[in-house]
Design a protein around this nucleic acid. Structure first.
Lengths: 142, 142
DNA sequence: GCAATATACCACAAAAATAGTAGGAATTAA
DNA sequence: TTAATTCCTACTATTTTTGTGGTATATTGC
């Protein structure tokens, strides 16, 4: 579970769109300026988000990107997974990972699996809306 | 939470020592051969484990390494933390991480913190002995 | 004392992953 | 038709990970 800048930027793009619903379709240029991220780099990131059908786009002048669901219908987990291929804690759990020839005898594999399940369950329980309001963390631990 | 080969090898060294208590002090050469890991690379790893006081060593002929506690008194969390400086999911949580100037306004920071707490709590609840027996995962989900 | 076997320490190097850039083609509204 | 914009492909730089090499120091058995 290493969240890189790609994943963090993806969240910021989604949050930016969620924070400005009145603007409708928003150009990458606007988002890049507001978030102070290079527009060229963002291009890569929104491409991933679009491929995962997390947002929609319109090309040409006056074009841009917009959410295609309500903020409470996006989970942080799916946003991160759409860009990070490294969410699993160890490489042997990753889709492309080298299959360890000792997997059957590996004393640690079940632990990594459980850890992976726990982290994914947590991230799938946090929605974009939760991040927007922040209540989840303000009210906690009363 | 990206566990690299350093952390995985550290676990294997600790497990190897725990699996051969009758041998007492064991040389790196022996461990390297049993685990099929380059001895030179292992040197770095045991140096970290020793620094964290997770094992003891004797120099010179007939020397080597040995555990200084019972297997149930080691947690996987402390073993990994002694070698991985990357256990936190995002760099802004890491000790050496660049302090983000927007931390106060960051909508995602509380989430990363909670995720970090959850993963550390899990890893601190797994002991070397748990890995040795594997029971924790065999009997689960009945 | 000396040879053999170890750990301890420091610097360097190769490989892989991450982060970011460059240039231009295709599309659309005004 | 022009300006703004997404879309696509390739390239480059930086950082992290994964090692290697060489040497100094310590200990044991002969």
């Amino acid at each position: 579970m290493n969240v890189t800048s790609k994943g963090r930027y993806a969240l910021r793009v989604m949050l930016d769109l969620a924070q400005h619903p009145e603007e409708g379709t928003i150009s990458l240029k606007t988002i890049a300026e507001r978030q102070e991220i290079s527009m060229k780099y963002l291009e890569m990131i929104v491409a991933g988000l679009k491929k995962a059908e997390l947002l929609e786009s319109t090309r040409g002048k006056e074009g841009g990107y917009r959410l295609c669901r309500a903020p409470e219908d996006y989970t942080v987990g799916e946003i991160l997974r759409s860009l990070e291929d490294n969410l699993a804690p160890v490489s042997c759990l990753r889709a492309d990972g080298v299959r360890c020839d000792k997997a059957a005898a590996c004393a640690t594999l079940p632990m990594w699996k459980e850890l992976d399940e726990i982290t994914n369950a947590y991230l799938d329980a946090v929605t974009l809306q939760d991040l927007l309001t922040g209540e989840k963390w303000r009210e906690e631990k009363v």
